[in-house]
Design a protein around this nucleic acid. Structure first.
Lengths: 345, 345
DNA sequence: CAAAGACTTTTACATGCGTCAACGATAAGG
DNA sequence: CCTTATCGTTGACGCATGTAAAAGTCTTTG
């Protein structure tokens, strides 16, 4: 960069002969400055290297143009897709997204929330960690900011906007499908610390009851670190196979990552899960993880509409920005899942 | 929140009877304030709800305590693992990580770099997009900040620190392995826009030459959107199978995601890739994607030491912080890959 | 040609906190 | 009890920009 560096608007204003406040207005919205000044400023900017200081601008503006997003895990393509759709929606609306990951640690989640408050973000979107989270963190955000909870939610939290999949619908859909085309499925669950995992488990049981079948739930004990979903599915199913159980049943997994582990367990035991093998083992998941079309066999699942969830969360936040403090009622968006029938069930 | 909210240090200082500068020093480092003041302040903080303003603190400090990180894709577990290791290393060192994703768009990558400059981050770590990136963006960052490039690098960029896998070593390792235990592999490449993809391709050719085999490279034409690696592997290999080629060869894929697509192609064509099938099709990848132990067959690959790469990148940045402007020479850390022998080859 | 009107620009103050130099208090030494 | 050294405290200024109100400027109208 051979261009001389200029660090403040003051210097810039001296360099190109336009007053500093005019420059300030130019950088916020060039149309608020007269045609002639715009040209003078633009000619000037070509000569030097200057960008307004991020902190100084944000500190004084009423609105920071920033949205804070917290997700629980990073190493999960479901959340990265969600994040991607949020970032794109926010970018389109002219907002900057600041992402923080809780890394499965409630303490980090709490710190991230405090950071957002101290940054005066315009709003926050949070996908909560689960049972171990401090609910006060969410209440605090909700009380002080436009706030939307996403993906999963604690049952006890009142008056918080929510956007996520309609799990009774989505899990009901695949449960019904599995029952229709083969033996009724058992449910390969997870330790009951994740709100969605619990919702899906309940939805499975409700649908089974409705259809007149006996629900069977396995895998609620933690045998692996919580976020190693594949390892969990593998361990639970391997264990059952070793005992000679469920070798020719249907298995509905709480999510696709668990299902991928389950597929491995099945293959390890010489089984080939698939819809075509009437009466044989079938395995299905939930989410439509991006790798589902590439597993062997390809994985039957229910797709969450990730793009719509992210977009809706941002849209709802934007609504709240406009509504200011006209205290509205709680808004809950439940989005339908879509059956993705592939080879595994 | 029944606690009264306090928005400025000024108010807080009035509320608990300690001068504002003392509070300022307390929040930066409590040991710089006398024992008695610390107690007064802590008692006061229990009564009210206050956090120092993020922007105001950052604007005035010489050092912002922030590290900017840019990664090219989000929907890739390799990068999320890298990000995770960076965040943990940075957190341990007391730094806050601000992450931006380029979403495969050089324009976004450029904006992210500008944002970091305007935020006065203490340093930046960038995993570049590839051939389409504007190299001036990296030069600009390197000239103005402690800067480390990570994962892959443009060949033409001089005097920039780098941390990444030693691809001649890692790719050489698996090429040699494949040649040793079976027929010499063809290389399932990618369009030549990704620096690492090119490095691995060259490393494969070099090793094949060294071993006296004829290198064969396929898949350099783009048939899918660039970042759909699995779809690329599937499409390229399916195409070749349809023409009756390479049905019983070995295939070294440029990375594991491509290999996962290749596995699917093989299975679709009734083939069962595996090391045990002497003379039959074998498929291997590169990276040790977290799902490799769960694919069918489990995927043989070379692991990149993600944790070490992330840690080293942060460490190097910290070194540069201390070194100030004592212009040191360029430092390049090349980290060995490790062979992960599984079922597929 | 003067006055009114519609914009622009500028003046002056505000934002929330870091930092230094001067100040004050406290404890050790005589 | 007074002096000196030490350490923590505070007043005053600085940081890079936003913003409301006052002061231009130029065009339009009577």
């Amino acid at each position: 960069m051979s261009k001389p560096e200029i660090h403040t608007m003051e210097e810039l204003s001296a360099a190109i002969g336009v007053s500093r406040p005019t420059l300030s207005r130019y950088f916020q919205d060039p149309t608020k400055v007269s045609r002639s000044s715009v040209e003078r400023i633009q000619r000037g900017l070509e000569q030097v290297d200057y960008t307004p200081n991020f902190f100084a601008t944000r500190m004084n503006r009423k609105t920071t143009g920033m949205i804070g997003v917290i997700i629980p895990y990073l190493n999960d393509l479901f959340f990265t897709r969600l994040l991607e759709s949020i970032e794109k929606a926010a970018m389109t609306a002219g907002y900057t997204v600041i992402t923080q990951c809780s890394h499965s640690d409630p303490e980090i989640e709490k710190r991230a929330a405090e950071t957002f408050l101290s940054m005066n973000v315009d709003g926050a979107i949070v996908a909560p960690l689960g049972d171990e989270s401090d609910l006060k963190v969410y209440e605090r955000l909700n009380a002080r900011l436009p706030f939307v909870m996403m993906d999963s939610r604690p049952g006890t939290l009142a008056n918080v906007d929510f956007v996520g999949t309609d799990h009774p619908q989505s899990t009901g859909l695949i449960t019904e499908y599995l029952c229709r085309v083969g033996p009724p499925p058992i449910f390969l669950a997870m330790p009951r610390v994740n709100f969605n995992a619990m919702e899906r488990e309940r939805a499975y049981i409700a649908k089974m009851d409705e259809l007149g079948f006996d629900p069977v739930v396995v895998g609620t004990e933690a045998v692996q670190p919580l976020w190693h979903f594949e390892a969990h599915g593998l361990a639970v199913l391997s264990d059952l196979f070793a005992k000679g159980q469920f070798l020719t049943s249907s298995v509905l997994c709480v999510n696709d990552r668990v299902a991928i582990g389950a597929l491995r367990a099945a293959t390890d035991h010489g089984l080939e899960p698939g819809a075509l093998r009437k009466g044989g083992l079938r395995i299905a998941g939930h989410d439509d993880y991006p790798l589902c079309p590439y597993t062997t066999p390809t994985l039957t699942t229910v797709a969450q509409n990730v793009a719509l969830i992210g977009q809706t969360a941002v849209d709802r936040l934007l609504e709240k920005f406009r509504a200011e403090n006209k205290s509205e009622n709680q808004v809950v968006h439940l989005i339908d899942g879509t059956l993705k029938i592939r080879q595994s069930a």
